[in-house]
Nucleic acid binder design. Structure first.
Length: 617
DNA sequence: GCGATCAGCT
DNA sequence: CACAGCTGATCGC
């Protein structure tokens, strides 16, 4: 569940997915998708009144989200204030302060998020840099590279901040079978059942939320049928969904619901009340889509689990897994990452620390330590970014969070060198200026940490409260986290750091054993990690609590492999704005070499960074 | 009577 | 197995 407070520090005059409290003063609203936890305050009378007195404030979302939203009478009053935007079409939006007339332009691009119908990410491009608000999303590995608007030419755009759907950003959720695997498993189960007779029917026990539609359309297509649902109203303008759903109960696949549907099912009734089509009793199985996750080294897993005589759970996820998120972040390498969800049993601090490893600063930290030339490049790219975060008074008088960060930054910089003025516009000029930052890495690292920790003023309370519950069992996470941090550095030096981590893992494991789960043993049988997982599509009769077994082993293993993976990814990302030439040996460069390097870097990299942020302005 | 919040339950 | 959201109780305005 999202606990994002609604405002991005870079663009605090707009609100995203939150419509209460300070968001009531926003100059523009954005709704990423039509789930209630992203719509807080959206039907509030205060906001409704504000709209009636405003000429400028609008709600921006996708066409599909607009349709879904307006299909609910409680939100019908938004009709005249909604501006639906096409996907992948950069659109300039003027943010006007209606009192002062002050204006700021922002370019927004909607990117399909794969979470539910109409769900999008928002890419904001403006004077404060490129910011990606992911909303909720499910991306497969590699998906980010296929999104045109995350690129500028052949390069990845310079993303300042990602506001991230971190629902499964926790190594517990290392992998979740792909959509295709899940669909295939469900199709096989359903096919085997409904082919037996017309009285063999399936009840898809779906929650009351958008997001299962692609299941319906795929099943409808596969079995040349329609799925029974309670209402078609919300899909009336979406033919590609509408054609696969029906309110006619005489179909073999149902996704209808009833407050007492579980009882109904026990009594061999469908939620719609059906017990028979023509006097012949139905043979009903229930399939409950639910998230299943697996460890990094899980060799074979089932996407269907039998939970009773005629009950099944089927793997289904609205959100990206840990490894999918990592792939996404490794590709984008944003400067900052802020989680919008704290996974159950975690705290904001823990998640922020783990996310720091995926920040651009952090991956460069490794390069800085072992590849000294890298720091020049890193500083070059980062200097301006850095400064732009603290240069002017845009945040003056606004919320505490950005100001606090700014102050922290300045004080950090002061210790190294006198306060700097705003960065020069010229690329060449900015170069020597930023290179003089003698020890920038630690500062930047701290900066990332602090900003994450201190972000989200009132939001933090919620998150910390969430976290309180698990302060009783912190060792497992802490142990794990420490190990990972260590590995981060060690891995670059020594490929045998694996043994170091393996040694550390039993300790964290034993503390974890106090949890309710019964992880599998540290068996050595899985010495050979298969990166190509084969999720079984075949129905399993197993009723074991399979999905979280091996947690401890996975945690430890994750530490080792993810760093390797990260390195590979950065190597493959040769076109990135912030990639750097490899330094084969760590000798100290001579001044003339440095000068050559400066020229090379200045000729391309920085120019691209600057252009990237102005591309659509 | 309405909204916000929380516990409980899927 | 934890998606998202409903229902009902309680409290405050």
């Amino acid at each position: 569940m999202s606990s994002f407070a609604g405002r991005m520090k870079e663009y605090p005059t707009v609100s995203v997915d939150r419509f209460d409290r300070e968001n009531l003063h926003a100059r523009a609203y954005f709704l990423s998708h039509c789930h209630k936890d992203h719509m807080k305050g959206l039907k509030g009378p205060i906001l409704k009144r504000k709209l009636q007195f405003s000429r400028m404030v609008r709600l921006y979302c996708s066409f599909v989200t607009k349709e879904l939203l307006l299909s609910n009478p409680k939100y019908a009053f938004w009709e005249e204030y909604i501006v639906p935007l096409e996907l992948e079409s950069p659109t300039q939006i003027s943010l006007v302060d209606e009192a002062s007339g002050e204006k700021e332009d922002l370019v927004v691009t909607l990117l399909p998020a794969g979470h539910c119908p109409g769900s999008v990410m928002f890419l904001f491009e403006g004077s404060r840099g490129n910011v990606l608000y992911t909303g909720d999303f499910r991306f497969a590995v590699g998906d980010a590279s296929r999104i045109e608007h995350l690129h500028s030419g052949s390069r990845v755009k310079d993303i300042q901040t990602v506001y991230l759907d971190s629902t499964f950003y926790d190594p517990r959720y290392y992998q979740i079978p792909t959509r295709e695997m899940c669909l295939n498993g469900i199709s096989e189960l359903i096919g085997n059942w409904i082919s037996q007779s017309p009285y063999h029917v399936v009840w898809l026990n779906c929650k009351a939320a958008y997001g299962y539609e692609y299941l319906f359309t795929n099943l409808g297509e596969t079995f040349n049928t329609q799925i029974h649902v309670r209402s078609l109203e919300m899909f009336k303008k979406m033919p590609e969904i509408l054609s696969y759903v029906t309110t006619d109960r005489r179909t073999q696949i149902h996704a209808c619901r009833h407050p007492k549907d579980e009882e109904f099912f026990q009594g061999n009734r469908l939620p719609c009340g059906c017990t028979a089509f023509d006097g012949t009793p139905l043979r009903i199985i229930s399939i409950k889509p639910s998230t299943m996750w697996f460890g990094e080294r899980m060799r074979k897993t089932n996407v269907i689990i039998k939970t009773g005589g005629s009950s099944f759970r089927a793997c289904f996820s609205f959100h990206s897994s840990y490894s999918e998120i990592k792939d996404f972040l490794s590709y984008l390498k944003p400067v900052n990452i802020y989680p919008s969800v704290i996974p159950l049993g975690r705290t904001l601090t823990e998640v922020s620390q783990l996310l720091n490893l995926m920040c651009r600063n952090q991956s460069d930290l490794v390069m800085f330590v072992y590849k000294p030339l890298g720091v020049l490049k890193r500083t070059m790219v980062e200097g301006p970014t850095h400064d732009s975060d603290s240069d002017d008074g845009l945040f003056d008088g606004l919320d505490l969070v950005p100001v606090r960060k700014k102050m922290g930054l300045n004080s950090e910089i002061k210790t190294a060198s006198p306060p700097k003025t705003a960065p020069p516009v010229s690329v060449v000029e900015s170069f020597p200026l930023t290179v003089t930052d003698s020890q920038p890495v630690a500062h930047n690292y701290m900066d990332c940490t602090e900003s994450n920790d201190e972000e989200d003023g009132d939001d933090e309370e919620e998150k910390e409260k969430d976290g309180k519950g698990d302060t009783s069992n912190p060792p497992k996470w802490d142990d794990f986290f420490t190990a990972e941090t260590l590995t981060d550095s060690q891995n670059s030096l020594n490929s045998q750091s694996q043994s170091c981590c393996s040694a550390a893992s039993p300790a964290s494991s034993s503390s974890k054993m106090t949890g309710s789960q019964t992880p599998d043993l540290f068996s050595d049988e899985e010495e050979n990690p298969e990166t190509n997982e084969h999720f079984s599509l075949i129905l399993s009769a197993s009723t074991s609590n399979h999905s979280s077994q091996n947690q401890d082993l996975e945690l430890a293993d994750t530490l080792i492999l993810e760093q390797q993976e990260q390195e590979e990814l950065s190597e493959s990302q040769a076109s990135s704005d912030f990639d750097i030439p490899c330094t084969p040996e760590s000798k100290i460069p001579r001044p003339d070499e440095l000068s050559q390097l400066y020229k090379k870097l200045a000729s391309g990299e920085e120019v691209m960074v600057r252009k990237g942020s102005q591309g659509f302005a």
